[in-house]
């Protein structure tokens, strides 16, 4: 089975909020120099989902990673290779910067068409910078294949269909999907495996394939920010203010009554 996993390099979502900075004039996030980028955690779990399929038959299954961006840190984007993926394709060019979900999905779709044969595509359910959660579904639409979102398990069945357990509000659904298909993976899949030193050394021998817009048949002037379908009107950091009123009274009953009165005045109850 040929599997493709889309992995994005993101700002470390565990970075302290105080390090998070915006370029408000241009409606952009700023990468703080002291914070190292990481692979989007949901995307790591997408890699894990593919690896669990590959574990069953290493020779019969192949995993290709595709990452899109500019100035991608090699020690970050090569992590899926060190976990056990086979190949890495980087869509890396300044022109790819500033894209929205549509722009990213369009470039990924063009790259996947160039790759050619595939059975399954895995994406993280969303990426941690914008949390849009649209690239997976959009990519499936552009490729004309079915998608199953927010999966916690994916297993290849006899006959080639894929059984997917999909998270819903009160449990999970079990679905079967024919290939080719796209699956977005949620954190309920469980922890992604660590890289290993042997994996890192094997990854050192693999050079990523780098594709520019022209390599995937796209005009550099019509990708990234230029391909956006959405426009950010205003980007700002909400200011959170904490205020504490202490309700004091002579007796607990009186305090409770005063508290209820205040909550009602503030339309909490």
């Amino acid at each position: 089975m040929n599997m493709i996993v889309c992995c994005k390099q993101v700002l470390d979502p565990e970075a302290a909020p105080s390090t998070f900075k915006l370029d408000a004039a241009n409606n952009r996030m700023v990468q703080p120099p002291e914070i190292k980028p990481v692979v989007n955690p949901y995307d790591e779990q997408a890699v894990e989902a593919a690896l669990r399929i590959k574990d069953k038959d290493k020779a019969a299954n192949k995993i290709t990673i595709i990452s899109l961006g500019n100035n991608l840190a090699r020690d970050v984007v090569k992590k899926p290779l060190s976990m056990g993926a086979d190949e890495l394709i980087l869509l890396e060019d300044p022109a790819f910067e500033g894209g929205d979900s549509f722009a990213v999905a369009s470039a990924l779709a063009a790259a996947i068409k160039k790759v050619g044969q595939f059975d399954l595509i895995f994406c993280g359910r969303q990426e941690s910078e914008w949390d849009d959660g649209q690239v997976g579904s959009g990519l499936a639409e552009l490729l004309g294949i079915p998608s199953v979102t927010i999966a916690k398990k994916a297993e290849v069945m006899d006959g080639g269909k894929v059984k997917v357990e999909r998270i819903v509000a009160d449990g999970y659904q079990v679905l079967e999907v024919s290939t080719p298909a796209l699956i977005t993976v949620s954190n309920e899949l469980g922890e992604a495996r660590y890289a290993t030193l042997k994996g890192i050394m094997a990854a050192s021998k693999k050079q990523p394939v780098v594709w520019k817009p022209a390599d995937i048949g796209m005009d550099a002037g019509k990708v990234g920010a230029a391909a956006r379908k959405s426009k950010i009107v205003k980007l700002f950091q909400p200011v959170k203010e904490g205020k504490c009123d202490i309700v004091s009274a002579d007796s607990p009953a009186e305090a409770a009554s005063l508290l209820a009165q205040k909550l009602r005045e503030n339309k909490v109850i």
Partner: peptide, 9 residues
């Protein structure tokens, strides 16, 4: 790259 990956792992 590999040394940085080893440290991170």
């Amino acid at each position: 790259t590999e040394e940085k990956m080893t440290r991170k792992m």
